[in-house]
């Protein structure tokens, strides 16, 4: 076997870290979108990712629908799930307290996970990468092209979202809701619709994340829980509610995990992110870029 040089190996960790970090960043953005509007932490956020990957596998591989159409179909499907989640699980709760909302989103995550197991079984699914599996050699490191796709999609998602929040009426209305729900409803913004939209939007982003990561790491029905925890760690690390924070937090977390697994211990790979989460929560709960007050429940 060919010996990979140390610098090549480090580069490999770096790229892997950024790729995984991009995934976490997308999950984190999903968390933030719902949190900003509703102050709910959606524990089912990871399930959107899992559903994205699995649906795509069915459409693209099983049914043979071309990549682009399957991609769009998957995003639409998962978005619908997000809409249903708000309508069927969150909206009907009469006395929303933090604890009830946490329990409700956990319940949804169980339902989605159970349904995913019913439809897809327990085996992992694979997807063909968007542009083949021929590795690219850079500076002594070997990279799958799909890694670059993941990073590219994070950029695309971020660009589209900034356009949405800065330039469109709906996006501005959502931001207004995030700033002050009461004031937003006073000026005639339909807060309920904004809540619905926040669920749709973060489901869609989750779906995209699931689609692009599946060719690298496969996807199975119960992947969502861990992804949600990692994504939330990224959220906290960056500062709850902060978009740049979510990206930064995701990337830092991805790098910590990749280098930690490579250089320290791969068995404790999942523990690194959680230790970071606990560290931040215990010592600087507002995160790197956040300055939010500790959770207060907003009415909606």
């Amino acid at each position: 076997m060919e010996q990979i040089s140390l610098s090549g190996q480090l580069l490999q960790y770096l790229i892997t870290g950024i790729t995984i970090g991009s995934l976490y960043a997308m999950v984190a953005i999903g968390f933030n979108i719902i949190y900003d509007v509703t102050e709910i932490i959606n524990f089912a956020q990871g399930e959107f990712v899992a559903l994205g990957g699995l649906t795509m596998a069915s459409l693209n591989v099983t049914l043979g629908i071309p990549l682009v159409f399957a991609f769009c179909g998957t995003v639409v499907f998962v978005t619908l799930i997000g809409l249903l989640m708000d309508r069927l699980a969150i909206r009907p709760i009469r006395q929303p307290s933090v604890v009830t909302l946490i329990i409700a989103t956990i319940a949804v995550s169980f339902i989605l996970r159970g349904a995913a197991m019913y439809f897809w079984g327990k085996d992992p699914y694979d997807l063909p990468p968007f542009s083949g599996r021929t590795p690219i050699n850079i500076l002594g490191g070997v990279i799958q092209p799909q890694y670059l796709w993941v990073i590219a999609f994070l950029v695309i998602v971020v660009v589209l979202l900034s356009f949405f929040f800065d330039r469109t009426i709906a996006g501005k209305a959502m931001r207004a809701c995030a700033d002050n729900t009461d004031a937003a409803s006073l000026v005639g913004i339909n807060v309920n619709r904004m809540v619905l939209m926040s669920f749709a939007l973060s489901a869609a982003i989750g779906a995209v994340a699931g689609i692009i990561i599946t060719p690298i790491s496969l996807m199975e029905y119960d992947r969502g829980a861990m992804l949600a925890v990692k994504g939330f760690s990224a959220v906290i690390l960056g500062g709850l509610g902060s978009f740049p924070g979510a990206i930064l937090g995701g990337l830092i977390l991805g790098l910590i995990e990749s280098f930690g697994a490579g250089l320290i211990s791969s068995g404790y790979k999942d523990a690194f992110a959680l230790l970071v989460l606990l560290g931040v929560l215990f010592f600087k709960p507002s995160g790197i870029l956040g300055n939010v007050e500790i959770s207060k429940i907003k009415r909606f």
Binding site: V98, I236, I294
Partner: peptide
């Protein structure tokens, strides 16, 4: 409090 505590204990 709230979500933070839930996540910390989960972690």
């Amino acid at each position: 409090k709230g979500h933070y505590l839930a996540m910390a204990t989960l972690a």
